[in-house]
Amino acid sequence: MTEQPVKPVLQKPPGYRDPSTPVQPGPRPPPSKAVLPTSYKPKKRRRSCCRPCCCCLFALILVLILVVAVACGIFYLWFEPRLPAFHLQSFRIPRFNVTVKTDGTYLDAQTITRVEAKNPNGKLSLFYKQSHVTVTLGEDDTELGPRKVPGFTQRKQNSTSLKAETGVRNQLVDDGVGKRLKAGFRNKEMVVKVEVRSRVGFIVDGQSVGPLGVKVICGGVSLKRLEAGYMPKCTINTLKWINIH
Rank of each mutant, 00 (worst) to 15 (best):
K193C: 10
K179Q: 14
P37L: 14
K240I: 03
G229Y: 04
R169L: 08
V204D: 07
K33P: 08
D18Y: 05
G229W: 01
S222A: 11
E189K: 11
R147W: 06
L10R: 12
K148V: 15
R95W: 04
R46F: 11
R225G: 00
V149D: 00
G206K: 12
K33N: 11
K41L: 12
V192D: 08
L181S: 07
G213R: 07
L172C: 06
Y16T: 14
L181G: 07
C53D: 09
L57I: 05
T235W: 07
L10N: 14
V192A: 03
S222I: 10
Q89M: 09
K182N: 12
G210W: 09
K156N: 07
G104Y: 07
W78M: 04
K215E: 15
V191W: 02
C53K: 06
T166Y: 01
L77K: 06
S90K: 05
T105D: 05
N237I: 04
G184D: 04
C234F: 03
L107S: 04
V23T: 13
C54Y: 14
I74K: 03
L137E: 12
T238N: 01
L88S: 02
Q157P: 01
D141F: 13
I244T: 03
L239F: 00
G26A: 10
V200D: 00
S48N: 12
G26Q: 09
K193H: 13
Q11D: 11
G206R: 08
L144V: 00
G219H: 07
D175I: 08
